[in-house]
Design a protein around this nucleic acid. Structure first.
Lengths: 223, 223
DNA sequence: CGCGGAGTTGATGATCTTCAAACATGGTGG
DNA sequence: CCACCATGTTTGAAGATCATCAACTCCGCG
């Protein structure tokens, strides 16, 4: 594994994590191969992570092996920061991923200087909570079509509406995020393609062009 | 509506809310009739609530009228405290309910004296997050049987394992909490009764005796 | 007593899952 | 550079689960 250690400078290259700390905090860069575990559920939460490139997923497993992905973490996202001492999820890399790592205690210490701002720990936890609540509504009360439309719009927004949406995750990942079978995701995407709401770009099926965002939004809102 | 205003004394009658503030904070008692709205989604989050008796539910609605209940709030529970300025849910009373109300700003102000403790705002938000994450797993990856078993065990635990579990909420409420149809809840409860895992107590169907908690736990964990 | 809300139960059908097969893709090694 | 293999994706068919529609029962209350 490639490891580079560096003192974060005042103008950080990739933002939030070190910006939160107001600079002057040591962090390391770390690389994970696709599928590699970043941390496991129940492990001590010693480090905090920020995606520099690539993507990670955090999830829980049921005894029968069923997986529920709670969220995807894309470039710039921070994850693994817990209030308690241990991780409530497993996290691993969706694709080859570079992360910036720093010690939890250093970050928390630095954060106490910014208790109330948008970069505070409380704001981070609240953002996670808002996401979780929105996702509960999706999981509990939406059809497969609505779920997939919502997923596409979420990714589109988080990647700031690119012309071509490049999804780092597989159909299985999407399925485990939306609480449906992977075949259902595939079928639903085909339907959306046939209806002219999207098209695939290039040879791979992971590059998507959203042709009708308003149409998708209508689908998402109501069956 | 009945309203009584009182200064909270150093030994508060019903606990957390005023205990958090370390006493010396003014709160009022308020009564809601069953079904009455406590606050609406998007409204300004001016007050914080604690259940003295009864129960409340917080939920979101889809455009088509579908409801997803995020959580039930039972005696002693606090709810309605937001990090942002507005409520992300609607809340209403499940049954006739008495709550203790205090101003959000007073509480937040008082809380700053207990920034890191288990009574801090951060801990509250984190507890909500943990609940939401657990519920996401339930909504996304569990069968109706597993959902109902999980619900019964959750209520059993939160009411500290009473001999007779008195559910304040209707079958429809349970259904909207678990993301299934109300008929499915009813059917599933009948199955659990026929299998000898529970029985109803008295004339009403809202009093449940859990005859085999371990059996329910096995059902919850895996299909 | 009768009315209304809540709950149960049955029948039917839609949606989604599962099983299975075919096809595509991307990487690897000859 | 191409063949080959593992992995990922699509598509089809069959079946399970759950939702919906509907009828009926039960309980509480005026």
């Amino acid at each position: 594994m490639l490891v580079r250690t560096s003192a974060v400078c005042a103008r950080p290259p990739a933002g939030m994590l070190s910006a939160l700390a107001g600079g002057q905090i040591f962090s390391s860069e770390f690389r994970y191969r696709r599928g590699e575990e970043v941390f496991g559920e129940g492990e001590e939460a010693q480090y905090v992570y920020q995606i520099l490139s690539g993507a990670a997923r955090t999830y829980k497993l049921l005894p029968d092996g069923c997986r529920q992905i709670n969220s995807f973490h894309l470039s710039g996202d921070m994850f693994g920061l817990e209030n308690g001492a241990s991780h409530r999820f497993t996290a691993d890399a969706v694709v080859e991923t570079n992360v910036s790592i720093m010690k939890r205690v250093s970050l928390l210490d630095a954060m106490t200087r910014y208790r109330t701002g948008p970069g505070s720990l409380l704001s981070l936890v609240t953002r996670n909570l808002v996401h979780a609540e929105t996702h509960m509504l999706l999981l509990g009360r939406k059809t497969a079509l609505e779920k997939v439309a919502a997923f596409l719009l979420e990714m589109d927004e988080r990647l700031t509406h690119p012309a071509v949406l490049t999804l780092p995750m597989s159909r299985r990942d999407i399925a485990d995020y939306l609480g449906v079978a992977l075949e259902t995701v595939s079928r639903t995407l085909s339907i959306l393609k046939d209806e002219g709401l999207l098209q695939f770009y290039g040879p791979t099926q992971r590059r998507v062009v959203l042709l009708d965002r308003e149409g998708l939004a209508r689908l998402e809102a109501q069956g």
